[in-house]
Design a protein around this nucleic acid. Structure first.
Length: 456
RNA sequence: GUGGCUAUAGCUCAGGUGGUAGAGCACCUCGUUGUGGUCGAGGGGGUCGCGGGUUCAAGUCCCGUUAGCCACCCCA
C-alpha cells in the first residue's frame, strides 16, 4: 500500500486544531453579523473564461472537468481563487433581488495553484466583507469596512494587529504631479521598499525611465507614515517642492481628495479600535482594480507572515460599470496556521465530550446510555465508554482525550430493569469523586465545552 | 515559473571512508485480578520515497524520478 503523505499546500488539522479554526470562524461570523452583514455562499466553481479574465492569475487556477467528458461538450470550469470575483458574478446575477447598498460577508475555501510555503496554501479559507452600491458609495463605507475588520481581529485570541492604510487617489495624484506615466509600474517597485530598500527601489524606478528627481520624490512619499492626520503636512510640503508638471491642478485635486479620505479612515479606525490604523504611504497593493483606500494588516510580532487581512476600494465590481464597492478579506488559514504553529493558542481538549460514562459490564450498558442521555438532554456533551474494560482503562480513555469527567454508574440493585441512573462522578484531574445525579449535576462552566486557551 | 536543501519505525531523528538497521517518544502486555497518570520488566512495528546503475556486497556511491521544505515571484 502506498504511503500516505501530506499534500503540500492543502492543510489538514487535527480535531484539537480544528476546534481553534472553527472558533475563529465562529467569532468572525458573529462580528460580521453584529454589523449587519448578510452571509452568502457562492458555488466553488466559475467558468474559466470569467475567472481567467484579465490578469496573469490565470496560471493559478485549478480547472475542473469530468474524466470522460467529451471534447468541448461542457463549459470549462475552474475553482475560484478568491471570493471577490464570484461575488461580482453573484451581484450581477442577483442584482434585481438584492437591496443596495449590499452588505455581505462570505467565508469559504478558495484554491490557488501556487508554490506553497508557510502561510501560503493552495486551499485555504478567506473571510470577506464587502459593501457594494449601485451607483455611488460614500467614503464612510471605506471606514466602516476597516472598522469591522479591526474589531473582528481584535476579538480573536491573537496579539494586536496593525492596519496599514493608504489611498490610491492620493498616490496617483502625487505621481501624476511629478510626471510619472506608468503609475502601476512605479507602484510595483515602491511596494518592494521593505524588501530591497530605498536604493533598490530607486534603481528599479530609474530603470523605468523615471527621472531621478521624480524617483526621489515618490520614495520620499513612500516613507511617510503616521498613526493620525500628521502625515498631511508632510505630503503637502513634499508636493509643493516636487511638482514638475505644468498644470498640476487636476492631479492636486486627486491628491487632496485622497488625503481627506485617508485622514477620515485613519481617524475613524483608531476611534473604534485605538492603536490599530497607521497611514503608510508605501502601501501599494499589487491588484490594479483598487481605486481609493487600500488596506494591509499585520499581526504584531508576526510581520514576517505577511498581510493577514487586505483589501480596498474599487470603482466597479462588474465589467459594465456601476457597482462601486469596498471590501477586505482575512486569510483565515494563514492566521490560524500561525496561531497554532507559533503556539499562541490551543484547544483545551480535542473532543466535545465533557463526561465519559463508564460501562460496568456489557449487560448494564443500557444504564450507562441512560445516564449519558440524561446529561445530553441538559446540553452536557457525553459519550459512553466503548468497552467494559477495567475502570483504569476507561479512565485512561478519558484522560487521553482530555475528557474531564468520568461517570461511574451505580452498581444498582442488580435488576436490569432498574430505573436507577445515579452513580458517582469523578474529576480525573483532581481525583475528586462524589455521588451525583445526572438530572441535576453540572460541570463547571469552564469544562462544559472545549475552550481556546493560551498554549504552554 | 526560477533556485537551494531534504526523504530511514506512527512522530523526531542517529546511522565517518559500502559489510545486511538503531535511539527517544508514542503504542500493546505484565507487575497492579474493576479507579488512570509515576516507576519497573517485556513486546509489536521499517521491502531505508520510487526506479535503474556500479559492486562479491548499497540506507551509504552514481543517474533518473516523485514528494516535501525553504527562498524568489506573487499574494491571504
Amino acid at each position: 500500500m502506498a504511503r500516505v503523505r501530506p499534500l503540500s499546500g492543502f492543510p489538514e488539522w487535527t480535531p484539537a486544531e480544528r476546534i481553534v479554526e472553527a472558533s475563529v470562524l465562529d467569532s468572525l461570523r458573529e462580528v460580521f453579523q453584529l454589523h449587519g452583514f448578510a452571509e452568502i455562499e457562492t458555488r466553488a466553481v466559475e467558468t474559466v473564461d470569467r475567472l481567467a479574465g484579465k490578469s496573469e492569475a490565470a496560471k493559478e487556477i485549478y480547472t475542473l472537468g469530468r474524466l470522460n467528458a467529451e471534447e468541448g461538450s461542457e463549459a470549462k470550469l475552474g475553482l475560484h481563487f478568491d471570493l471577490t470575483l464570484p461575488f461580482a458574478r453573484y451581484v450581477e446575477e442577483f442584482q434585481n433581488e438584492l437591496a443596495f447598498p449590499f452588505r455581505r460577508f462570505q467565508i469559504q475555501k478558495v484554491w490557488r495553484g501556487e508554490r506553497p510555503q508557510e502561510g501560503r496554501y493552495r486551499e485555504f479559507y478567506q473571510a470577506d466583507i464587502d459593501v457594494v452600491a449601485r451607483q455611488t458609495l460614500p467614503a464612510h463605507a471605506d471606514v466602516e469596512v476597516a472598522v469591522v475588520m479591526a474589531r473582528a481581529l481584535a476579538a480573536l485570541p491573537v496579539p494586536g494587529v496593525t492596519m496599514r492604510v493608504n489611498n490610491r487617489r492620493l498616490v496617483e495624484g502625487f505621481y501624476r504631479g511629478v510626471g510619472i506615466g506608468d503609475i502601476a509600474g512605479a507602484l510595483r517597485s515602491v511596494d518592494k521598499l521593505d524588501k530591497i530598500g530605498p536604493d533598490g527601489v530607486r534603481t528599479e524606478l530609474i530603470e523605468q525611465d523615471i527621472p531621478e528627481s521624480a524617483a526621489a520624490a515618490i520614495l520620499d512619499l513612500a516613507q511617510i507614515s503616521a498613526p493620525d492626520a500628521g502625515f498631511v503636512a508632510a505630503v503637502e510640503d513634499l508636493w509643493a517642492s516636487s511638482t514638475t508638471v505644468h498644470d498640476p491642478a487636476e492631479a492636486e485635486q486627486e491628491l487632496r481628495a485622497g488625503l481627506a479620505e485617508l485622514v477620515a479612515l485613519v481617524e475613524g479606525v483608531n476611534a473604534a479600535v485605538p492603536g490599530t490604523a497607521v497611514a503608510d504611504l508605501r502601501i501599494a497593493r499589487g491588484l490594479d482594480y483598487y481605486t481609493g483606500s487600500v488596506y494591509e494588516t499585520f499581526l504584531t510580532g508576526h510581520e514576517d507572515l505577511g498581510s493577514i487581512c487586505s483589501g480596498g476600494r474599487y470603482d466597479s465590481l462588474v465589467a459594465g460599470g456601476g457597482f462601486p464597492g469596498v471590501g477586505m478579506s482575512i486569510g483565515v488559514s494563514r492566521l490560524v496556521s500561525r496561531m497554532l504553529g507559533a503556539g499562541l493558542v490551543r484547544a483545551s481538549r480535542p473532543v466535545p465530550t465533557a463526561v465519559l460514562v463508564a460501562v460496568t459490564d456489557e449487560a448494564s450498558r443500557a444504564t450507562s446510555v441512560r445516564i449519558a442521555d440524561a446529561l445530553r438532554g441538559r446540553r452536557i456533551a457525553a459519550e459512553v465508554a466503548p468497552s467494559a474494560a477495567k475502570f483504569g482503562k476507561q479512565i485512561q480513555y478519558a484522560d487521553k482525550r482530555g475528557i474531564p469527567f468520568v461517570w461511574f454508574p451505580d452498581a444498582g440493585s442488580g435488576d436490569a430493569e432498574s430505573e436507577s441512573t445515579g452513580g458517582e462522578v469523578k474529576d480525573i484531574r483532581s481525583g475528586d469523586q462524589t455521588p451525583a445525579d445526572p438530572t441535576s449535576w453540572e460541570p463547571p462552566a469552564a469544562d462544559l465545552h472545549p475552550r481556546i486557551v493560551p498554549a504552554d
